[in-house]
Amino acid sequence: MLGVSDLVKIYPTGEEALKGVTMDIEGDEIVSIIGPSGAGKSTLIRCVNRLTEPTEGSIVLDGQEITDLSKNELRNARRDMGMIFQEFNLVERLTVMENVLSGRLGYMSSWRAFRRNFDEEDIRHAYEVLDRVGMAGHEDDRADELSGGQRQRVGIARAIIQRPKILLVDEPTSSLDPETSRKVMDLLTEIAKDEGIPVLINIHEVHLATEFADRIIGLREGEIVFEGPATELDEDARDHIYRGGESREALEKQRAAEREQRSDAEVTEVEKETSF
């Protein structure tokens, strides 16, 4: 469904955010991207739908090369890519229903979109999706009246109503408390599996990534340093992703040495206090 080959992103400042990333997503699998801050996770997600323009490389979605598309062609291609954002990206003054239906704007002419002249089928489907994400009865609420968890549910509904070929999800739980984060991830992955939609999700919480994803991609300094089933993400793999390849044994030795130094310092302080 999605093929990324030798993807490079260099910002005008000279920062190389992605250094030849290559990966594939197939079927209805859920793939989580993890890594330290600044690893290139969000850049990778945003390059796929060209919210950020890649410097080099190839992005192919369902047989279509994305990097060569014109502005109008890209608008059509983005209908196949449901995007769920970290900061929700809802229009605050619009209602829940209006925000959800905005997921159909890519299928409408500019005139119909301006007039918000949605098909009855789209409206019916929006009610169904809102019920599915637990937001039935909130259709007329303004977005700025919602909690963070409710906003993210609306964001999921907006993406699903596009009927996309893939879901691109950027930090969906970073603004949520732990309990709400788990509920959102459970809802997101359940709907994706039911609809048969593959998911590429950038997430900080490693425990949520391993619980809900089929496969893990570990990024560090713009490069893939781990790729495999979620069950294979052991402590050594996590250390390699987040600490630059230091082994678990080496880290334990370092921690032991630090504890010993602290103990020595404590003994010295005691000696000072008891000396006359």
Rank of each mutant, 00 (worst) to 15 (best):
273 E>N: 14
141 D>K: 15
166 I>R: 01
194 D>H: 12
214 D>A: 09
183 K>T: 03
1 M>F: 10
261 Q>P: 02
26 E>L: 14
41 K>A: 06
246 E>W: 12
86 Q>Y: 04
52 T>A: 14
93 R>S: 14
54 P>Y: 05
57 G>R: 10
12 P>F: 06
155 G>N: 03
193 K>W: 12
182 R>S: 11
146 L>V: 08
241 I>P: 00
94 L>A: 11
246 E>N: 10
153 R>A: 05
257 A>R: 15
94 L>E: 12
197 I>E: 03
110 S>E: 10
77 A>I: 08
127 Y>M: 11
47 C>G: 04
188 L>V: 07
156 I>F: 03
99 N>P: 01
175 S>I: 03
103 G>K: 01
90 L>A: 04
174 S>D: 01
268 T>W: 14
25 I>F: 07
201 I>D: 00
118 F>T: 07
165 K>T: 09
215 R>A: 09
130 L>M: 10
218 G>S: 10
207 H>L: 12
274 T>Q: 14
163 R>I: 01
176 L>S: 04
67 T>P: 00
101 L>R: 05
126 A>G: 05
118 F>H: 07
172 P>D: 01
82 G>C: 06
251 L>N: 14
149 G>H: 00
5 S>D: 11
97 M>F: 07
56 E>H: 12
161 I>A: 07
2 L>V: 09
49 N>S: 09
124 R>S: 14
35 G>C: 11
81 M>H: 08
167 L>K: 01
110 S>D: 12
36 P>C: 11
10 I>N: 05
135 M>Y: 02
173 T>D: 00
20 G>S: 10
232 E>Y: 05
112 R>D: 15
164 P>C: 05
16 E>F: 09
160 I>P: 00
130 L>H: 04
188 L>G: 02
89 N>W: 06
44 L>H: 06
171 E>A: 11
103 G>E: 00
181 S>C: 09
255 R>Y: 11
93 R>T: 14
159 A>D: 02
57 G>I: 13
126 A>P: 02
225 V>P: 00
93 R>N: 11
12 P>W: 06
268 T>H: 14
191 I>L: 10
141 D>G: 06
206 V>G: 00
177 D>K: 04
207 H>V: 14
130 L>T: 08
8 V>N: 12
264 D>K: 15
266 E>F: 13
202 N>D: 07
162 Q>W: 05
255 R>V: 14
43 T>G: 04
273 E>V: 15
76 N>H: 13
155 G>V: 05
67 T>D: 03
148 G>T: 07
81 M>L: 09
106 G>K: 12
213 A>F: 05
234 D>G: 06
71 K>R: 15
39 A>M: 08
230 A>R: 05
265 A>K: 14
42 S>V: 04
